[in-house]
Design a protein around this nucleic acid. Structure first.
Lengths: 180, 180
DNA sequence: GAAATACTGTGGCAGTTTGTCGCAGCATCT
DNA sequence: AGATGCTGCGACAAACTGCCACAGTATTTC
C-alpha cells in the first residue's frame, strides 16, 4: 500500500543458490531486485514495493508458480512476469502465458536471455522453424505433463489415466530436465 | 462480410490426409467444418462463412501458422484458435498463445483431445469432458508411424530423427502386428 | 475434529526393455 | 566394381518397469 521504494525485479525461486546468483548478476547490471522463496513472500513484497518485473519459478516447493502468477496479476496487472523453470513443458508454458506471463524459459538460461525475454520481442520465432519432429522421449514428456496438469498435479490419477504404474511415473517425473 | 452460412470448425493444415481425417471425425460428431490448405484459403473462408473455432497447423508450407493466427484474430477477434502441430516447441507454443491461440497441442492428438482443448475455457455445448488420454504406448506408436512415413519407411533415418536406437525401433516395429 | 481415504516418497527385487557391438546380406549411387 | 547405407538378427550388460510394502502427509467424510 505504501509503495515507497521501487524495485526493478522480483525473483521468486525456492532454490536460494540460484536466486542469489541471479540477483548478483542483475545487480551487476545496475538493476535492483528482491528475492522471495515462496508465494507468500512474493505477494508480500509486491505490496511493500513498487515492482515492474518478476521472474518466477514454476516449481516452488508446495506452491505452484502458475497459481502465483495469477495472484500476482490480480494484485498488480501491470507486472511483467517471465516464468523460468527446469521442468519445462509445453502445457505449463501455455498455461503460464494464459495466466499472464509474457514469456517462459527453460532453466539453464543465462541472465541475458532472461532480460531479453522481457524485451519487446516476437523475434525468436522466425529463426528456428524447426522441422525436426519431437524425439520419442520428448513427446512422452509433453504428453505426461499435459495429462498431469489436467489432473491438477495428481500423480496417482495421472498414472491411472495413462495406464502406467505410479512408481514408473514418479521416476520419470523426477528424472527429467529432459534434453532437446 | 456476408456471413450466410455458419460453420463450427475451420481446419487449416497443409497435409490433406490429416485434414480429411480430422474433418471426418468432427462431422461424425455432428460438427460442420471447412478445410483450408494454406493461409490464403483460410482468410478467404473466414470472410465467406461465420466460423467460431479454428484448428491451425504451425507449419503450412511456406506460410507460418503463427502469422496466420494473428491475421485471423484481426479479422475475427472472437475466433477461438487451437494450434496443433507435429513440430512443437516451447517457443512456438508461447508465441502462439501470445498471438491469441487458446491452446496448443502436439500432433499425435485424437479428436477428443482437440475438442477438450477448446472446451477448457470456452464451454462447448454438448460436451462431456470425459475423454481418456491416449496411453503412452499408443502415442508413441502413432508418432513413430508418422515419422516413419515421412522418411519413406527408412528405419535408420527414422530412428535418427526420433533420437532412438535403430535396434530399439526395429524391435518396436516388430512387436506390433503392423496394422491399426 | 476424528476416522477413513487417498496421495506421496522410498526402498528392494525380479522380469523386461534398451543401448551397443558385431556381422552378413541386399540395395543404391558413383 | 567399390563405396555407402539400410536391414535383420544374436548376444549381453545396463537401465527401466512392474509390483509389493511401509510410513508420513493431505484430503474427505461423517
Amino acid at each position: 500500500m505504501s509503495n515507497q521504494s521501487a524495485l526493478d525485479f522480483l525473483i521468486v525461486d525456492d532454490d536460494p543458490t540460484f536466486a542469489a546468483m541471479l540477483e548478483r548478476a542483475l545487480k551487476r547490471r545496475q538493476f535492483s531486485c528482491a528475492i522471495a522463496q515462496n508465494a507468500h513472500q512474493a505477494l508480500q513484497l509486491v505490496e511493500r514495493f513498487s515492482i515492474t518485473k518478476a521472474i518466477v519459478d514454476l516449481k516452488l516447493g508446495n506452491d505452484s508458480g502458475l497459481q502465483l502468477i495469477r495472484e500476482l496479476k490480480i494484485k498488480l496487472p501491470e507486472l511483467q512476469i517471465v516464468m523460468l523453470t527446469g521442468y519445462s513443458s509445453i502445457s505449463t508454458a501455455v498455461e503460464a502465458v494464459k495466466s499472464g506471463a509474457i514469456n517462459y524459459l527453460c532453466k539453464p538460461a543465462d541472465t541475458d536471455e532472461i532480460l531479453a525475454a522481457f524485451g519487446q520481442d516476437s523475434i525468436s520465432e522466425l529463426q528456428e522453424m524447426n522441422y525436426t519432429p519431437l524425439s520419442v522421449d520428448r513427446l512422452e514428456w509433453e504428453h505426461i505433463q499435459k495429462v498431469l496438469q489436467e489432473n491438477n498435479g495428481n500423480i496417482s490419477a495421472t498414472a491411472r489415466a495413462l495406464g502406467m504404474h505410479r512408481r514408473t511415473l514418479q521416476r520419470k517425473l523426477q528424472k527429467r530436465p529432459v534434453k532437446q
